[in-house]
Design a protein around this nucleic acid. Sequence first.
RNA 1: AGUCACGUAGCUCAGAUGGAUAGAGCAACUGCCUUCUAAGCAGUUGGUCGCAGGUUCGAGACCUGCCGUGAUUACCA
Length: 589
Amino acid sequence: MKSTLERLIPVLYEAVTHVTGIKNTLSLVIQYTKKEFPGYITLVLLPLMKILKQSPEKMGNQIGKYVKKHSQIIQSFRYINGFLNFECTDSYYNELLKELSSSNFLTTTSSDKKTLMIEYSSPNTNKPLHLGHIRNMVLGHSISELFKSVGKKVIKIQILNDRGIHICKSMLAWNKFSGGETPENSGMKGDHLVGKYYVCFEKAYRKEVNDLCAQGFDEKKAKKEAPIMQEVHQLLRLWESGDEKILALWKKMNNWVYQGFKKTYRQLDINFDYTQYESNTYLLGKRVIEEGIKKKVFFYKEDGSVWVDLTKEGLDEKLLLRANGTAVYLTQDLGTTIERFEKYPIDSLIFLVGEEQKYHFRALFIILKKLGYVWADKLFHLSYGMVELPSGKMKSREGIVVDADDLLEQMNQVAKKITKELGKVHDYSSTDLKTLSLGALKYHLLKVDPKKRIMFNPETSVDFKGNTGTYIQYTYSRIRSLERKAMAIASKNIHPYSPSEEEKYLLKILEQYPSLVKSSAENFSPAILANYIYELAKSFNDFYQNVSVKIIQDKNLDQAIFRLKLSILCGEVLKLGLKLLGINMPERM
RNA sequence: AGUCACGUAGCUCAGAUGGAUAGAGCAACUGCCUUCUAAGCAGUUGGUCGCAGGUUCGAGACCUGCCGUGAUUACCA
């Protein structure tokens, strides 16, 4: 269906042409009237004043008269200070509510049937997930949902960084210090167990470095020559040579981690269509090397290493193959990116990866373009800011992190406590509690612009009051409760009713839902939608708590029906909107 | 040093394409529950939108310079 704005655009242009005589040469500024001013749709006259040396008030009156005469939905207009505000007829508002409630305007459709792949999460397998990962996952999920809702086919993919020096560190420390500790015999979640030995390694390593420094080594040398570091590199070589014993340990420990991740993913309702393993893809880049050399995009240096010159693009020379013939991160990503386009029918690819890798992806995309891949323009690095603590960055190596599982558990406890204190619902299930705690956490992370850093204070943590997921969920459960109590009225048809300013404002917000979803997807920003949903919830609560007559007691049946339908519609939009953020709604609170 | 982000109320953040008097939440204070759910509503206090120029009828938004914060520029991933 067409929005009110879309309906009025033609007649407004017509009116301006009629009054001013100017055709096609100007673009009018037409918008929904701001809350503080009376009216529904506004035409900004100021730009016209520049062209015509007429009094804007006079011009506004002429345009207003023309529009009123030629549009059936306009009731009146008012000129204020360079702005022409239009008010619609009561019957239009009734019709609008009817259309919004019954039409397909909530199920956004699109002719764009393109397939988009999004890579997110993609953790290392040497430590458990933390709050930074949660931000990534929650963003990835929401952006996937947003694109689905505007008609794209979305493929969600993660690549598990399951090999390399980092996992060797955990393996070595486990071999040395664990005494055979397993998730089974310790009761510890697998990823936490492996993470424990990663921290273990770092501690032992730091001690060795300090000892060496005390013996007079300089720090750089000490870091390189610490015995335990030597051992790790030996372990990595054994892994790459396919040593069976090492591979068995590697598989065992990775499996512990996967069991752990699986549990956390389930807690967060996160899932993927495909999972890649770096151990399967890390060699893929090598064929790109040959291709690049053949096309003279890459070049050899004397020691046999392979490079690409990106200085013209404002970057540096980047290494693609070490002198010893092994691939680096960039090479590997070239390989996996090409493979994705060959293996899956995708039109574009989004990498949801932290802002610290901006440079990496810039280089990656430029190289692919240089290699002549036509889809290189369809690559997008969705970079997001990191989650910081009051003490600064989170540091996994030192164990200074907000652990994902701990946080989820803690939030669940708080939700339980508050629910109990308020004492309204006594039979809350663990699923209900999860809906609340997850809603609060996800909304907290999604309401801020992805590209901005998030400051997370564990002391104050995530709120359940104010601009929160909880607030929106609460608003929804109020509406559901109302709906249950007023079922009889809800089924009746809408009769003409003259809506209040608050009610018109709700309609104004509601009808903008599809365009907000679209803008949210286009800008890769669930925050846009989150803030819209909050505004809707707030306006609903304002309306709900300030109507003079309770809806279900209202003797004026037309008013009651209008209000009830409006409320139900608000509830539906709140629910759909939060669904796109990956947040569920409770029926009661 | 180069490149790229960000800088809005004490704190955390909105301000989609330049438009009316810059908005929320938290914190502080004041009212409102014999209830269509008070996890709420209404109100008070709180701003030289980092600074300085420029473009424009109009700039928090765009351009230039500066300051501040962060990321990055690894034969790490």
